[in-house]
Design a protein around this nucleic acid. Structure first.
Lengths: 196, 196
DNA sequence: GCATGTATATTCACTAGGCGGTATACATAG
DNA sequence: CTATGTATACCGCCTAGTGAATATACATGC
């Protein structure tokens, strides 16, 4: 019954997503995921060949939803590209206040798996960050901003720094500072575009 | 024998430092640390009341050495503050190529312990990052740069972003891009200082 | 229409080993 | 004789992963 995707498989990934993000991959047992999904561990191992596979599926499933959230914040914001970029950080600072917020799942997983650089979950994270950078560069380019790829990378660096600083200090001011710096960088490129 | 600090205790922390940084705190057992230190687990538990205590001791012990390394890179570099800041990133990009490099231990620990925000090791990381920010602001101030605290924070955000991006992409170009952006931000403040 | 075969999907019970932490004993030094 | 430090051996629990049986669905042969 290849009905789009086995609903059992989806239930497992959904349960894994909640637990892995909330607790970290090393602190969540396969038993706990099976229980949360309402089935036995043996069934889980019928759909995934190992825990590592499930970790990778968790991150692969977060790529598009995360990008869509960023894009939504960007598009909804009023004003020029600088205001739109700053809006992403402002929304990030808002949601990061929620007690369930635990940083960027991609970065946290890469940190946990630092001793396994070829792990499929780390690769999934690398792809996601590259997708974000690419999407942002395209948006900046559409707003007639100079050197959009370089600028997109700088903004992404500020954003990952904001994720990390928020996680270690638990203070949204760091995210706002990153947003302010990002907006300044955008305006600087706007100027040079106007000059040329 | 209170000889400065019990050499046994130091041996334990040294072993823990190597293993925690190389593998991540969740992947290292207390047994493994005891074996690496050349003693039994019971002796380890005589000196530390829990694994969590040992994790905190590991990060507390990295604060000053890490700061000294950054300061050394900054002071050794020739040129103005912009070149000195960029030199920190250039050195970071260099050491990050080494296969034993596994990112920033403070950030990785905060990522692993995201579900325990009050953990003493996370607090140790917060203190270290604050110390770095403070040191850098003082250096920038000594170089007659405007708004040194804000700038120091922006540079720290770029640095934490560089740590994270390097960990997920394994490509030092991200660290260099962060260094370039940081140097640009420094030069922008130099200009406004000259104007006023 | 009904038996049979086969692939998918699921459960219960289990293994072998690793985990953080501890009870107890023994050595050594002041 | 007491405090500090170290060792052997152990506990109860949790871990990722598995073997064997079972249930369901659906196609085929007759």
């Amino acid at each position: 019954m290849p009905e789009a995707e086995s609903s059992t498989r989806k239930r497992i990934v959904d349960a894994a997503t909640k637990l892995f993000y909330a607790e970290g991959i090393g602190r969540v047992s396969v038993d706990a995921i099976a229980e949360k999904a309402g089935l036995t561990k043996r069934t889980l191992y019928y759909h995934f060949k190992s825990k590592d596979d499930l970790i990778a599926a968790y991150l692969d499933g977060r790529d598009q939803p995360n990008l869509k959230q960023m894009a939504g914040w960007f598009e909804t914001a009023e004003g020029g590209a600088d205001r739109k970029v700053e809006a992403i950080f402002a929304n990030l600072a808002r949601v990061a206040r929620h007690p369930k917020w635990k940083g960027c799942g991609f970065l946290r997983t890469a940190a946990e798996l630092a001793s396994m650089p070829g792990h499929p979950a780390v690769k999934a994270g690398s792809r996601h960050k590259a997708n974000f950078e690419k999407w942002l560069a395209a948006e900046l380019s559409a707003h007639s901003i100079a050197a959009p790829h370089m600028l997109a990378r700088e903004i992404m660096l500020l954003m990952d720094g904001a994720f990390s600083s928020m996680l270690i200090h638990h203070n949204p001011d760091y995210i706002k500072a990153a947003g302010h710096a990002a907006a300044t960088l955008v305006r600087a490129r706007l100027v040079s575009a106007t000059i040329s």
